[in-house]
Every structure is written in C-alpha cells, then in structure tokens.
Computed example of a mutant assay.
Amino acid sequence: MNDATARMRLESILAELDRSIGVLSGGPAAERERSAADAGSDLTDADRNRAMLDVAVQHRRSVVEALKRLDEGLYGLCVDCGRPVPEGRLEARPEASRCVECQSRRERRR
C-alpha cells in the first residue's frame, strides 16, 4: 500500500473512531439519543458502553501511532524487528505495527 493510500485509510478510520468515541462518551448526539430513549438504563449497558469506549480509544491510539510512523517514514516496518509488515496485513489492518510473527509472539506472552 502506498503512503497516500495508507494516509487516506488511516485518516478515514480516525474520523470514524472520533465519531464513535463522541457518541460513546456522551457527546451531543448521544444526549439526543438518550433523551429519546427510555431514561432508565441498567448497569450492564453502562459497563458495555465503557468497554466499547475503551476499545475505541485504544484503536484510535493505534491509528494515531500509525500516522506518526507514516510521517517518520517508518510505516509498514515492524516496530519490534524492523522487517516489512506484509502488504495483506496492512490492507486488513492499516494501523498494524508488527509483522505477523512478532504480533503472534506478543499475543502468546499475554
């Protein structure tokens, strides 16, 4: 994936995440939805909302880091081993920071 395409995709993902985070964190759109819906919401909905917000914030952080790597000329290189991240992986996850091998190793350690 060339840099222009990567930047366009990452910025599009970032804009979508910003919209989602705004809704999940109670921005103006969320207030309108909440007032139109039942006033009562149970704890599990709040817990689910918080979990989705946490995931969206972490994903946003990954996208911002990918844009930074793009600016620094390091996009598409594994942050652990320095080898190129496979094109297919970047197509599927433009924010990917590790090659498949290093990502697998990282997930096994968790």
Rank of each mutant, 00 (worst) to 15 (best):
M1F: 06
M1A: 10
N2I: 13
N2D: 15
N2G: 15
D3V: 12
D3M: 12
D3N: 15
D3Y: 14
A4N: 13
T5A: 11
A6Y: 03
A6G: 06
R7T: 00
R9C: 07
R9Y: 06
L10I: 08
L10T: 08
E11R: 14
I13T: 12
L17E: 02
L17T: 01
L17Q: 05
L17V: 07
I21M: 07
I21F: 07
G22E: 09
V23P: 02
S25N: 15
S25F: 10
S25C: 13
S25T: 13
G26W: 05
G27F: 09
G27T: 10
G27K: 08
G27Q: 11
P28Q: 13
A29I: 14
E31T: 14
E31I: 14
R32N: 04
R32H: 11
E33H: 11
E33T: 10
S35R: 10
A36F: 09
A36I: 08
A37R: 06
A37E: 11
A39N: 09
G40V: 14
S41H: 09
D42I: 03
L43W: 11
T44A: 10
T44K: 02
D45W: 08
D45M: 12
A46G: 10
D47C: 03
R48A: 02
R48C: 02
N49V: 06
N49Q: 15
M52H: 12
M52V: 07
L53I: 02
L53A: 00
D54H: 06
D54P: 00
V55C: 03
A56R: 07
V57Y: 04
V57D: 05
V57P: 03
V57F: 03
H59M: 11
H59F: 07
R61G: 12
V63F: 04
V64Y: 03
E65D: 15
E65M: 12
L67G: 05
L67K: 01
K68V: 11
R69P: 02
L70I: 06
L70F: 00
D71G: 03
D71A: 08
D71W: 01
G76F: 04
G76S: 02
L77A: 05
C78H: 00
C78F: 02
V79S: 04
D80P: 04
D80N: 13
D80R: 08
C81Q: 07
C81Y: 04
G82Y: 04
R83T: 10
P84A: 04
P84M: 01
V85H: 01
V85F: 00
P86D: 08
E87A: 08
G88H: 09
G88S: 11
R89A: 08
R89I: 08
L90A: 03
L90I: 00
L90D: 02
L90E: 00
E91D: 14
A92R: 07
R93H: 07
P94M: 00
E95T: 06
A96H: 01
S97K: 09
R98L: 14
R98G: 04
C99F: 06
V100I: 15
E101I: 13
C102F: 06
C102Y: 05
Q103W: 05
Q103P: 01
S104M: 13
R105P: 00
R106G: 07
R106E: 13
E107P: 06
R109Y: 10
